[in-house]
Design a protein around this nucleic acid. Structure first.
Lengths: 251, 251
DNA sequence: ACTGTAGTTCCAATAAATGGAACATATCTG
DNA sequence: CAGATATGTTCCATTTATTGGAACTACAGT
């Protein structure tokens, strides 16, 4: 096995619930002899992929990773523009907002904009959520052909339900989740794509569900949709659809 | 040369002004035969360190890097706590705030909190600034022994000036920069350390310099200092000093 | 269809990675 | 504080991945 693959396996250990790692942990988790694990971590330290935490024997990702994450965000015009839209909406309504990507069955927030209201949802960047069970996830899944979703979730007991919810998302142009991932929290999401790079991102706002009336909710959806619509128009995202808003008060 | 070192050299290409890269670029920048560059990028793609952008032949850091950056931030209690302090200050005053680390001669923002005021400094995470020429940088350099600074900046024409400014930072407990990096922008910064891990971070707020009176400035410093002081006390940072504020209006 | 540019695949030679065991160091426990 | 245990490092010959050059393929511009 190439040292590069081993190195990336080490990096993959980091994530939810693991922000540092030791030689022994690497040895057991990857099934490597501890000699190899020791050398591997040393090599990764030497080249900046890892760094030792203080004087301890624990390792965390190197500082370089922060630069790489920034480069990732900058490499995509779509992410940057979506971020501006969510940031503006987050400021106007005071609620926390995210930009998320899908990766298989999961979605991750890649940029967050914490709200300003006294009562607001605390941002939790990097947290992985099941794509079928949150509003951002469903807007992203709704961008796939039905057959693809069926293949992804083959054997899943609630596949039928999921497909009908995705159909609804396609029809309405947005998704809502109510207390799905966190008690008391509701979220709205809209997806937009860059056909040139096949990227799809989801813009969302999350808020305490007792705080927002249906009218205000539609106001928020409208604001996200306006920004997303401009992005879609300029990049040529044909699948984007302006949302149907029943409760919106005409301006 | 180990493939791991080559891989990390590729990753190091990303940064200011470079968010994607091709086989030829790698070949020329690292001085590798293009055969090697091609195989290297392929291997890095295969293990998730890079990804191809759309159908093009350009590469950017892989999604994994976002998770790694999040793990880095979580691995340090210091960073998290400093972030809370700056976030609260940013919300209260409406100005943009950062958490920064020093790496040799440079400082980088690793977390940002965009302000809410109409006129605010746009956050620019990942941007590398010369440590001697910004307020965050000087608070971090002020944490080093004078001899170490002298060694770092040996031969630098303005070493004497720098040392006297650092002495001032040590005496006052905070640093100010006025239109140093960006015209019209002023910033205040305070450093705090975790003696258990030898980490030092700088908390800062940046704002349009015409908008803030000396009294308000001291109010902001006081708020950052209060939070930083609590962190210093709980972690046992002996070098932390409450700032001397001349213009503060007694509460 | 032609030319230059960019990227990939093939090969034997070479340099790096591997696992086991001995060694060294930290951490726990009574 | 000694002895025990868990954790990390160094050394070695062996195995195997990596290397650079050259030939090959793909592609964009004219």
């Amino acid at each position: 096995m190439s040292i590069l693959h081993n190195a990336s396996d080490v990096l993959r250990c980091f994530g939810t619930g693991c922000s540092d790692i030791t030689v022994t942990e690497v040895s057991t988790r990857l099934g490597l002899p501890k000699a190899s694990a020791s050398r591997l971590l040393k090599a990764m330290r030497d080249c900046g992929m890892l760094e030792e935490i203080g004087g301890t024997r624990r390792h965390r990702p190197g500082r370089m990773m922060l630069d790489l994450a920034a480069a990732f965000r900058h490499s995509s015009g779509l992410i940057g523009r979506a971020g501006e839209v969510v940031a503006a909406a987050s400021r106007r309504f005071g609620h926390t907002g995210y930009i998320s990507l899908r990766d298989g069955f999961e979605v991750t927030a890649i940029a967050d904009f914490e709200g300003t209201n006294q009562l607001r949802v605390v941002s939790n960047i990097g947290r992985r959520l099941p794509a079928h069970a949150c509003s951002t996830g469903r807007t992203l899944l709704a961008r796939l052909p039905e057959a693809e979703v069926a293949r992804l979730y083959a054997g899943h007991p609630e596949l039928e339900l999921l497909l009908s919810r995705l159909a609804q998302v396609r029809a309405e142009g947005f998704a809502v989740s109510t207390q799905e991932t966190t008690l008391g929290v509701e979220g709205i999401a809209i997806a937009v794509a860059d056909p040139a790079t096949d990227e799809v991102v989801s813009l969302c706002l999350v808020y305490p569900h007792t705080l927002v009336t249906p009218e205000e909710r539609d106001e928020m959806i409208a604001m996200l949709a306006e920004g997303a619509g401009e992005i879609a128009a300029s990049l040529g995202d044909a699948a984007f659809m302006q949302p149907l808003l029943k409760n919106r008060i005409p301006q």
